[in-house]
Design a protein around this nucleic acid. Structure first.
Length: 220
DNA sequence: GCGACAG
DNA sequence: ATCTTGTCGC
């Protein structure tokens, strides 16, 4: 069972949210690499009418089959503000995670981890509150990067304010790269290895794809 | 003031 | 995120 740690009150203003991120960012751990990754959870949020639909799927990394899942609908309690993403999407995602019967070895989030203005993106937030290893896989870059080689597995550093905060990783030859960054209790090397294992056929990892399908199916 | 800005 | 036709490719 996944325990959700009560590390902060829920903010009602942007200033409070920023202060919470600044306070929690130092608690992110970049050590502890999940070497025994057997299962990985995909997290995604769909929008149906005026509601959020949080979907989580747990996949067996070896077979990429779905072994568990959960869907939770909720009302957005925070506006969409770049940099404060977690305060909008994390609540229903945490509820969905707490409904799982299988505890995944790592969380694969749809968004950024350390590739964030205050180095505390959604993946860091969810990893810290669950104390589970986590990584962020974004479809668009938060930072600057040079195009990686065209071959699958090629990558280049993703930079933000002169810091390397992640990587632009090519998961399919000739296809736009995804943007991988560490969330919590994981290394960047391990994160990229995992993403490549989870994306043998398509641009996005299967974790994200299965969660996305589940969420939009539940949204109607 | 102007442009940037995860989903 | 979501609104959407046709089209290219396996």
């Amino acid at each position: 069972m996944i325990e959700i740690r009560d590390l902060h009150p829920w903010p009602s203003t942007e200033d409070e949210a920023v202060a919470i991120q600044a306070r929690l960012a130092p608690l992110v751990r970049l050590d502890g690499l999940p070497e025994q990754v057997r299962t990985a959870a995909g997290l995604d949020v769909a929008y149906a009418d005026d509601e959020l639909v949080a979907a989580v799927t747990v996949l067996d990394v070896e077979s990429l089959s779905v072994v568990d899942s959960a869907v939770v609908r909720g009302i957005p309690e925070f506006p969409y503000v770049p940099g404060l993403f977690a305060f909008r999407e994390a609540p229903p995602l945490l509820s969905a995670l707490s409904e799982l019967s299988v505890t995944p070895d790592v969380l694969v989030c749809d968004g950024q981890g350390l590739a964030h203005p205050r180095r505390f993106g959604l993946a860091c937030h969810l990893g810290l509150l669950t104390d589970l290893p986590s990584i962020g896989v974004g479809k668009t870059a938060m930072g600057r990067y040079e195009p990686p080689g065209e071959e699958r597995g090629a990558w280049t550093p993703l930079r933000l304010d002169d810091d390397v905060v992640g990587r632009a990783l090519r998961t399919q030859r000739g296809i736009k790269p995804v943007f991988v960054s560490v969330g919590h209790r994981c290394t960047l090397d391990a994160a990229c290895d995992l993403v490549l294992r989870l994306a043998p056929k398509y641009r996005l990892p299967e974790t994200t794809r299965t969660a996305d399908r589940l969420g939009r199916a539940a949204g109607r």
